[in-house]
Simulated scan of single mutants.
Amino acid sequence: MAKKSRTKTREAHAPGEVGPRQPCPCGSGKRYKACHGAEGGAAVYVARPFEGLPSECDIVALRELVPAATAPLTVEGTDRPVTLCTLLPMAAPAMYRDSGQVWLGLQVQHNFGDPSRDLAAALQLALAADEPGVIGLTDPPGEGPRLQDLVADDALTITVHDGFDFWVADVENKDDVAAALEQANAAANPTARLTQVEAAYWTNVGTKEHLRWVMPEPEDQLLDALARLHAAGDDVIVDGARLVGMFRAHGLLAPVWDLPVGTGPEPLEDPAAEFKARLDTALASDEPLTADERSARSGLANRQVTIR
Rank of each mutant, 00 (worst) to 15 (best):
P145H: 09
G142P: 13
I307K: 15
P141H: 14
H161Y: 13
A120H: 08
T7F: 15
M90P: 08
A61L: 00
H250L: 12
K30F: 14
D79P: 06
A296S: 04
L73H: 12
A121G: 10
Q107V: 07
A178S: 09
R6S: 04
A282G: 10
Q124R: 15
P89F: 04
P54V: 00
L222T: 11
T78A: 10
Q221A: 15
E143T: 11
Y32M: 10
D170G: 01
R278F: 02
C35I: 11
A296F: 01
T7Q: 15
K30C: 12
A69V: 02
D224R: 13
A68N: 05
V66R: 03
D139E: 15
R278N: 04
V66L: 01
V102W: 12
G105V: 02
H36K: 04
S5G: 08
G264I: 04
D220Y: 14
A121I: 04
A34D: 13
D280A: 11
P271Q: 02
M95S: 11
K8V: 14
H210I: 02
E217K: 00
V256G: 03
N302I: 03
S99Q: 06
V60D: 01
L268D: 09
A121W: 06
E11R: 15
F247G: 03
V151W: 06
A61Q: 00
N185H: 12
S28K: 14
D165Q: 05
N111D: 13
R63F: 00
D239T: 10
D292F: 06
L223H: 11
A91N: 14
R308P: 02
P23E: 13
P145T: 06
A178F: 09
E17C: 08
G27W: 12
A227I: 00
G37K: 12
L65E: 02
L53R: 06
P145Y: 11
M95K: 06
L194F: 00
I307T: 12
A42C: 13
P255N: 04
G52E: 02
T86Q: 02
V238F: 06
L268A: 07
T70C: 01
P141L: 07
E274K: 01
V46D: 14
H110C: 03
G40E: 14
R193D: 00
R228P: 08
R117C: 04
L300I: 04
N173F: 14
V205D: 05
G77C: 11
A14H: 08
T138H: 14
T9L: 14
V214D: 00
L253C: 07
N204S: 09
P54K: 01
R212M: 01
